[in-house]
């Protein structure tokens, strides 16, 4: 029982990270029906920006997170403008292949500039302490990750539900043409979506740095794919779905490595993905819509 509770605690903070990344996938998919393959790599860039903010600028972890979020928000907007916008009216396959291209580009430009070796996230920025509650060990970094992720998600919910920007985002994802007729600027709304999604990914990147201690240029691939699975699990395009999906994936993963074979950790994510796609491709919270002939 204690063992189970321990896994639960570990899984919650990992799940919070996946949820943050999954949100970006889902928001972008919801609005332009693109699987933004490069999203995991934006997260990686965020981790590096956070790292340099701490080591070069000497900021604390929270400031590092903010710097990373700002940087990646801009990066996300640029990626959309340069690579995805010209393809908005072409096939989805073309857009998907472009996204793969952007993903590879971010990974290898980072390797080119900084080298392939991993970097150790400075522990001075976040001294680890361990608490014991009812026989469960809880690290302060787990608490930090969990709380900051939840705060960010609450802010996101506020933006989407209550602000004009959020309403525009919902309108565009519901019906782009109608939104144009209502005087909403689609381009601007899409840019904002990318900015927010990328900022959340950057925050997740800094959290991954804290959580795993090391960062490397290819670190975005696997968490990115898992977060994507989380988004599909919750029903891609559905924001609460991504949050739930993220936590489910995080818990599932820690349970599998805790009780089973940790080598199968990554396979489990894909197994879940394939099961979901085969049983209910629209995800847990999705509605079925067929093609109109």
């Amino acid at each position: 029982m204690i063992e189970f509770a321990q896994q639960l605690v570990n899984g919650l903070s990992l799940g919070a990270i996946y949820a943050l990344i999954a949100l970006g996938y889902t928001m972008v998919y919801g609005i332009i029906k693109l699987i933004n393959f490069a999203h995991g790599d934006v997260m990686m860039v965020g981790a590096y920006v956070g790292f340099f903010s701490i080591t070069l600028l000497g900021t604390n972890i929270l400031a590092a997170m903010l710097v990373a979020m700002l940087f990646c928000a801009i990066l996300g907007v640029i990626i959309e403008k340069v690579a995805y916008r010209p393809l908005r009216n072409s096939t989805r396959i073309a857009a998907l292949i472009t996204a793969i291209g952007v993903s590879l580009f971010l990974e290898y430009i980072t390797i080119f500039i900084l080298g392939p070796a991993q970097k150790v996230f400075p522990s001075s920025a976040f001294p680890i302490t361990e608490y014991h509650i009812a026989g469960i060990s809880i690290l302060n970094k787990n608490i930090f990750v969990f709380i900051s992720a939840v705060v960010l998600m609450l802010i996101l919910q506020y933006i989407i539900k209550w602000t004009k920007t959020g309403k525009a985002m919902r309108a565009v994802s519901l019906d782009m043409e109608a939104a144009v007729l209502m005087g909403i600027s689609v381009d601007k709304t899409i840019s904002i979506t990318f900015a927010i999604g990328s900022a959340l990914a950057a925050a997740a990147g800094v959290m991954v740095g804290v959580y795993y201690n090391t960062i490397n240029p290819l670190m975005g691939i696997i968490p990115g794919l898992k977060a994507f699975v989380a988004a599909v699990l919750g029903g891609i395009g559905i924001i609460p779905g991504a949050m739930v999906g993220g936590f489910v994936m995080g818990l599932l993963e820690t349970m599998v490595s805790g009780y089973g074979n940790s080598m199968y950790r990554d396979a489990v994510a894909f197994g879940v993905l394939i099961l979901i796609l085969l049983i209910k491709p629209t995800g847990l919270f999705g509605k079925n819509t067929g093609e109109k002939v």
Partner: peptide, 16 residues
């Protein structure tokens, strides 16, 4: 790394 950067640019440019 350069090779992969070129690959990625090929993908993006060809698609656009």
């Amino acid at each position: 790394a350069v090779r992969m950067i070129i690959y990625s640019l090929i993908l993006i440019i060809v698609m656009i």
